[in-house]
Amino acid sequence: MSAVAVKYPELKAMGVEVLAMSVDSRFSHKIWQEEELSKMVEGGVPFPMLTDPGGNVGRVYGVYDEASGVDIRGRFIIDPDFNIRAMEVLTSEVGRNVAELIRQVQAFQHVAKTGEVTPSGWRPGKATLSPDPDLTGKVWKVWKPEQAFE
């Protein structure tokens, strides 16, 4: 959570609202913010911390784990039309990659704006593809897989 908070200004500048959610109560959220998060990130986490008692929201999003009674790490990108664009769900031992989250939002925003599509590993400034019947079978001419890692 604190890693997302560090990148929050960048997300905010991109017009992104962040919402965090766990099965903990709002009272627990408050104390975690005051006692720990505010010491890891200046001012604490700047986005709403939502409660999901009983995991009902987590069930609908496919992240509630009955065995442990918690919502496991799940991240959903929702577009302005309220459609889910991306989801990533991890078991709890591995933290998320906020840089990849930002890259995906940038790509979805670019696609929404331009109608172009973004090949593997795309970042702002890199080549995109324009879907066209003439491009069928010819992607190899304009895009090489190595570009995904440049």
Binding site: V4, V16, K30, Q33, P48, I72, I78
Partner: peptide
């Protein structure tokens, strides 16, 4: 229910409709 900017309030996801939203669950 939510903890927002030092206070408590209810939050509805669709209140954020029209914006890009990142919803993060954590254990």
């Amino acid at each position: 229910n939510a903890y927002v900017e030092g206070g408590f309030k209810n939050v509805k996801l669709s209140d954020y409709k029209g914006k890009w939203i990142v919803l993060c669950f954590y254990p």
